[in-house]
Design a protein around this nucleic acid. Structure first.
Lengths: 354, 354
DNA sequence: TTGTACGCGTTATCAT
DNA sequence: ATGATAACGCGTACAA
């Protein structure tokens, strides 16, 4: 007659383990948490656990400890940048017994909020996200509520959150300087939204490199194609139709570089013979491209390690406040075959960095 | 003196919302779950919720309902096959308010078990995994315990679980038949482990295509390089050193195709002039390759939809048993430029499929 | 070291 | 439609 009767498939609980082992429930709990237990009891408990097929309920435990061992990961897509990051991070978190709760949001704002709400409801111990502007207030609430937020890739300024970024500006600077070094002066750039951190910084690196070489910024050579492959395709078309087309192009992400590559291929043009190309981000395709694409390689595994380190630090002692972490990683420039030297009178007079 | 005192940062609960709204706790619960509530109460509750910054605790809810709205996703890596699948699946699950708990396991067996244990402890509603043999017993337990298991990509036979697979054999057959159609007879194959489902089926497609064309299987042309890029590289080297080197090669996954491409590039050989190539899996790189790589394209989004469909079906009514689902999807062959026609006397006499 | 009993925040039951 | 109250399974003082 009792309620227990019908639920034949109810999972066995710590109570039943305790009963069968002939010990108190508290003893079982302490055994489960690796605390000392009289060895006679230990064997009883272990026997009971396997006999009953007991599996701990992490939810119930989380209600007590306020720790789900779960980290929220909010991302816009599983791009070739985010995928390896997810893999690295997942593996790293694993050693502390944690796993990722993953949420791919869509373009509209509300889906980001949905994701955050989901994570908060499920009491993730931490939230990891690439910086999406527009949710500052919500994130502030989250942090105030005790959920550490770690953002990577894109900075959101003025927020009390942790950051793991790369030095976008320095990397872009060096990439463009390489083009200058080998004699290019007509260097165009395909940028994404320069209102956001990465877009701004990467363009800034381009700008400073040109300025540093005594060149001016030609507005015709600066195209905002919104990180988009298709827009990069048509943007490149426009660039090449210029009276003075660029001899080299710097793409602020791999997506746009692919657009350029596609456009060139469709029109029978070749890299680097017809155009020199350097791109931010390094993807497998660049390695295998016929010429090899010279690119900025983000230290993805190091980013994951930094994030994991912050997670550990934040969760180690949650009640003592710690100043926001801010980690800036350096990128490598992988030199391959997508740039050609321009032997002009002009460049032969300028000093070159090897 | 009470315990409550110090935890200043305790989250507000449904109880406090009820108090502030001047209604019973049950009423708030019903409001939260979309059940009818007297409209006067509704506004009180809504006011209280925003005033108090209340956030529902999905953990506590899950303890009662036995539903976490969480789906475990266990995978070996974030490869170019798994990444888009994760993205599609994540987006699909989202519309039902579910999210993915993701776990990348490593090579050793135990890490797969760790992942399963984690998922079970966290009471995922479903487990999605690519078929990893060696854990049959554990999976059987899981299913018996009421957790639906859905496996994709690789079949594990003889288990009462759901499956979403592609017709590997048919796809390989058609891919290799294409090579035969354009006149190749010396066709080699780079396979992975032929003990597992995908490896066996893909090889079988190759075999049947050759046999169907009246050709024999030359063991020199069949190399198990364990799905590995590097082993494919050296395997291809061996193949080309044969007295009668193959004129075409079929790679059973994209990884091995990349190894072949790398080897050819390093040795100044070109596709399709020196070797025709067809690969299983379609990755961005193949699209952009100078020649374009002809490939078998798995319907990744459809796979995600099928998985999501099964999740919904299983969770819709959990107590009524349903026979294991088994969904087989067809692949497309994307014809690009990596194969060349062989005009031999022999092939001119055979009928060709266009 | 062990046993007891309470609380975590929610849903479900049952009267009202 | 609402209010009161008993679970859900675990961790943890506290007393022994």
């Amino acid at each position: 007659m009792s309620i227990e009767e019908d639920s034949a498939n109810r999972r066995t609980t710590i109570v039943e383990v305790a009963e069968r082992a002939g010990v108190a429930i508290g003893t079982v709990s302490r055994y489960l948490n690796g605390q000392p237990v009289r060895s006679a009891n230990r064997v009883q408990i272990e026997e009971a656990i396997v006999a009953l097929g007991y599996r701990r309920n992490a939810l119930a435990a989380a209600m007590k400890t306020d720790l789900t061992n779960t980290v929220g990961f909010l991302l816009p897509s599983m791009s070739e940048f985010h995928s390896p990051l997810l893999e690295s991070l997942s593996r790293l978190l694993r050693v502390q017994g944690r796993a990722l709760l993953t949420y791919c949001h869509t373009a509209d704002e509300s889906s980001v909020l949905e994701g955050i709400d989901f994570f908060e409801a499920h009491r993730v111990d931490c939230l990891v996200m690439n910086g999406q502007a527009g949710n500052e207030q919500r994130l502030r609430e989250l942090v105030a509520g005790g959920v550490p937020v770690i953002c990577y890739d894109n900075d959101i300024q003025g927020l009390p959150i942790d950051r793991v970024l790369v030095d976008n500006r320095a990397a872009s600077f060096r990439a463009v300087r390489h083009l200058l070094d080998i004699g290019h002066t007509r260097i165009a750039v395909l940028t994404g939204d320069t209102q956001v951190y990465t877009g701004r910084e990467r363009f800034e690196g381009y700008r400073q490199a040109l300025l540093g070489a005594g060149l001016e910024i030609d507005p015709h050579y600066v195209l905002d194609v919104h990180w988009s492959e298709d827009e990069a395709y048509s943007g490149m078309l426009k660039l090449l139709a210029l009276p003075q087309p660029p001899t080299a192009i710097f793409c602020c992400n791999y997506n746009m570089a692919i657009g350029v590559l596609r456009m060139l291929k469709d029109h029978g043009l070749r890299v680097p013979d017809d155009l020199s190309l350097v791109s931010f981000d390094d993807v497998p395709l660049f390695r295998l491209h016929e010429a090899g694409i010279t690119a900025v390689s983000q230290p993805i595994h190091k980013i994951a390690e930094a994030i994991n380190g912050i997670v550990n630090a934040r969760l180690a002692d949650r009640n003592t406040a710690q100043a926001p972490h801010r980690i800036i990683l350096e990128c490598d420039i992988i030199l391959r075959g997508s740039t050609r030297r321009m032997f002009t009178a002009e460049n032969l007079t300028r000093p070159q960095t090897p």
